[in-house]
Design a protein around this nucleic acid. Sequence first.
DNA 1: GTGGTCTAGACCACT
DNA 2: GTGGTCTAGACCACG
Lengths: 124, 124, 124, 124
Amino acid sequence: MKFEFNNERPIYLQFLEQLELNIISGQLTPGERLPSVRDFALQAGVNPNTIQKALAELEAAKLIFTERTNGKYVTTDQKLIKKYREQFAAAKTQKYLQDMSDLGFDPHEIIDYFTKKGVKNSEK
Amino acid sequence: MKFEFNNERPIYLQFLEQLELNIISGQLTPGERLPSVRDFALQAGVNPNTIQKALAELEAAKLIFTERTNGKYVTTDQKLIKKYREQFAAAKTQKYLQDMSDLGFDPHEIIDYFTKKGVKNSEK
Amino acid sequence: MKFEFNNERPIYLQFLEQLELNIISGQLTPGERLPSVRDFALQAGVNPNTIQKALAELEAAKLIFTERTNGKYVTTDQKLIKKYREQFAAAKTQKYLQDMSDLGFDPHEIIDYFTKKGVKNSEK
Amino acid sequence: MKFEFNNERPIYLQFLEQLELNIISGQLTPGERLPSVRDFALQAGVNPNTIQKALAELEAAKLIFTERTNGKYVTTDQKLIKKYREQFAAAKTQKYLQDMSDLGFDPHEIIDYFTKKGVKNSEK
DNA sequence: GTGGTCTAGACCACT
DNA sequence: GTGGTCTAGACCACG
């Protein structure tokens, strides 16, 4: 796993989001054991406290759980993962439509614009 | 004009973006005089300095200009506005595609997913 | 006479400096009658008050004088004009040398740099 | 570092320029850590906000960058620094030649005038 | 009345 | 301790 950060937003948030993405996209499989906080910190080149903070929030969201003394694991609740994935996709799509509509594109234009750009990508 | 802010991000940035959107979407016409800094501050319910900071950045981006002692105006450079509009749309689309792809949707799925949501909108 | 202003500095100052330059460079001859405040204002496209303020300062510097009810005239004191011209040139040169030296150019480099640029101009 | 201000121009601009000069003249080395905003404010005897404003502009110009919670640093992009140095020198030289020419000195006189003053300096 | 600058002082998130 | 944001309030030059 690779992590990249910029200075505009809190590092713990960026780490959190990138890890969350790895979980809900299926790149980390349900039940998989996570690296230790220390390892994460080394990998990402940040302070262990920063990792702690991020993992604590992911645990609050039930996307990971801690087994006492054994480490942290990706949730095995596949329904939950799917739910998050759906939520994410819906939210992003909603936001995208809103942004384009704010820009003055009407729905037809948005679809045109989008498919033009999208098709390019899909042909790579 | 209405302004709404949350406290996740700096107010001046949110104000800046909302005003920028009004300009590049054409809701504010080129050459139009903007409300005074003080009026904006009252409207938005924030301190005039906060408005000032946002407007200074928009001026640096050439989207508005100042006439000494007379007020601030939307740029009359329509090409520039169009350029920003294009950039904005491209960036948002790019980001949306990236987000969805990170989520594990492959390009065809994205288009399907999108058009499903998009078509709903276009039939309103 | 043509006047051009930008919005960064007070208009009356810019007008003042441009007029002063016209006097000490000899473009306006000693004793020459100046246009009326109103005419200046029309020519320059600014408020008559702005012109007044500038002319008042030039009068304080003795570069122009007022003949009651007859208008304003360029000073006839050629020594004074020459003195200003000298002062101006010395100040500008001094400042230029200071600036370049602050930039880390040593005197030889300055002369080289300058003559290179200067010669280009003189061959136009 | 010493800072001196007059009240003819905004303090933040004067501070900005003096710091910029220190960077492009090489007095501050690439990658060097700057004093904290608060320290600068104490040194210069002004409000931290004033310093902040100046530094924000230097950051926009890429001459410095911020490391979150750690401080601000001089850019490490030496090419950029050189570019600014060149621009500065060219602009100052251009302006000087323009000023002298406005004063009625023709190009040869300018060079004579300048070398007279310049040579004095170089023999110090 | 307009924008611009500045201060004093406060609070916040981050590491 | 760091930078960043925000407020309240003040003063100024300009036209």
